[in-house]
């Protein structure tokens, strides 16, 4: 018999969707800031001004969401826990990695049984969270320069030694990496929804997944 299990708690879902909205808005406004593709003829529209304002507001929103998720790593259930993110540390985790990899590369017929994230997914997310961190740091390092001596400037000033332009390039490249990740993420979620038949896609809205206790081996 299938049973319903509450897998994604509300902080996980909320931060997930805030991140989605923030990344989309930040990418669009960020692309404009990097290469202003709208040009206006009069001085009244304040296009760049608004783009930057929206970028900064959503940057703060994204930072808060990211930090909340990091805190939840230590408060949430086992599927949200930080321990999930290092499957390669344990022998069982390595087995899951090999299994998932084999399934993705058509070397085995059934996907390994998973309730939360699969082993490759969590590793990707660990990488994505690292990118989030670098993105927040480089972003606020660039932002803080409008006022030397401000909180962000003092916090991030050592990074200027890396080179102001390198900060911008890094910020820019990570945006593209996250866009690439987004494409992969949506595809994989849909694929899992089809193949695992456990309500993977709807679970990020409602939090519940279908679990077959017979298959669950601890």
């Amino acid at each position: 018999m299938l049973e319903l299990r509450y897998v994604w708690e509300w902080p996980v879902r909320i931060t997930h969707w805030v991140n989605v909205v923030a990344i989309v808005v930040l990418s669009v406004t960020g692309l404009y800031i990097g290469n202003p593709f709208i040009s206006v003829s009069s001085t009244t529209p304040y296009v760049m001004g608004w783009m930057r304002f929206i970028h900064y507001v959503f940057a703060y929103l994204f930072l808060m969401s990211f930090m909340a998720r990091m805190v939840w790593m230590f408060c949430g259930n086992r599927y949200a826990s930080w321990r999930e993110y290092f499957p390669w540390v344990t022998a069982k985790g390595r087995e899951r990695i090999v299994g998932t990899f084999a399934w993705y590369t058509f070397l085995r017929k059934t996907p390994p049984y998973e309730v939360g994230h699969n082993a490759l997914a969590v590793m990707a997310y660990a990488g994505v969270f690292t990118l989030f961190l670098v993105q927040c740091i480089t972003g606020f390092a660039i932002y803080g320069q409008f006022e030397p001596g401000s909180f962000w400037f003092n916090l991030t000033q050592p990074l200027l030694a890396v080179g102001n332009q390198q900060l911008r390039l890094t910020h820019h490249i990570i945006m593209w990496l996250l866009i690439g990740f987004g494409i992969h993420h949506v595809y994989s979620a849909a694929l899992m929804d089809v193949k695992e038949k456990n309500g993977c896609l709807s679970s990020i809205f409602g939090g519940y997944k279908f679990v077959d206790p017979e298959e669950e081996v601890e």
Binding site: N35, L169, H172, I173, W176, G180, I183, S188
Partner: peptide
């Protein structure tokens, strides 16, 4: 430019996963 590389990366991802799909 970084944008051309990024766009290429995104397109390659989409093609790769499309084929996988």
């Amino acid at each position: 430019t970084a944008d051309q590389i990024g766009l290429g990366l995104a397109a390659a991802t989409a093609v790769a996963f499309g084929a996988h799909g």
